[in-house]
Computed example of a mutant assay.
Amino acid sequence: MKFTLSDEQRQFAQALRDTLKRSTSWDTLLALGVQEVESAPDLVVAFLELGRAAVPGPVVESFAVLRAASATLAWAPHIPYIVDDADNAYAIVDGIRHRATPKAELSSVDPSRRLFEYELGEAVEPVDEQAFDRGVLACSAQLVGLGQALLTRTRDYALQRKQFGQAIGSFQAVKHQLADVHVALELAEPLVFGAAVTMSPRDVSAAKIAAGSAAYQAMRTALQLHGAIGYTAEFELSRWLLKVRALVTAWGTEAFHRERLMAALCG
């Protein structure tokens, strides 16, 4: 299967990319119309750019699952806590959406992804059958976008940082590491778009596995090649590093999606 973006999708992606370079605020996202995206392929286009820009906040919950301007949800065990104290908070229990009240704030590996315990409230309505897979798909696209941004930043840094009088990007071992990350991301992205076309649980889980693995590889390589500076919170790279670390297990761990994929293949 060959998937090619339409001219409209390319223009949407470029508009998102250009605008998010200047601002990643929630008002900016709403002005761009991200909350109005409906089709799964368009959702992938949007979340690749949200990932590249390391946009904070419950974007998957708001724009992919609940399709609201500002909302958050918990869906245990995959999303055990409320992410951010958005205007509308919900929890999914046995396929039913309940209102939820955020309570105590918890520590989070990603400071831009605030976590809250919650109190379960009244039932609202059932969630549609594709809600979970839309969340997984959007998270997968976000991870690929994060990985692509990390690869770009790491490549640029490797061309500037010098050891023994040479840019480390000229060393064969560094080239191989960057090439491996590039290949992993290039293989993951079409899987995500393919899953958007079929929206089958099997394809969505395969996309999440590939996207999570590629983004995690990009994160590890970025840390290794940046050296100690990559660990510092003051260095901008940490925005992307910590978001990958938080999202790799969000919307289902690799183990969960591997089991789901095997059940679909062997069932």
Rank of each mutant, 00 (worst) to 15 (best):
G145T: 02
R97C: 00
D128M: 08
P126E: 09
V197G: 03
V197Q: 14
W240R: 01
S25I: 08
T249Q: 11
Q163E: 10
S108T: 07
H176F: 10
K21Q: 15
G165S: 04
A89V: 07
H78Q: 13
V244C: 04
V144E: 02
C139G: 02
Y231F: 13
R114V: 09
E38H: 13
A179F: 12
R155I: 06
A196K: 04
R97D: 00
G57C: 08
V136S: 10
V124E: 14
A179H: 14
A54K: 07
L5T: 08
P111G: 04
L237G: 02
V192A: 06
Q217P: 12
Q35V: 01
R113E: 09
A207M: 10
W75E: 11
Q35T: 02
Q148H: 10
E8Y: 14
V181A: 05
T4L: 09
S107P: 04
F63Q: 03
Q9M: 06
Q130G: 13
L247K: 05
H182R: 13
P126Q: 09
A179G: 11
R155S: 09
D85M: 10
V204S: 10
V60E: 00
L30K: 14
L20K: 12
G212E: 01
M219V: 05
G252C: 04
Y90V: 00
V124W: 10
Y118A: 02
W240K: 08
Q35G: 00
W26S: 15
E117F: 06
A206M: 14
A91G: 00
V34L: 05
D27Y: 10
T249D: 13
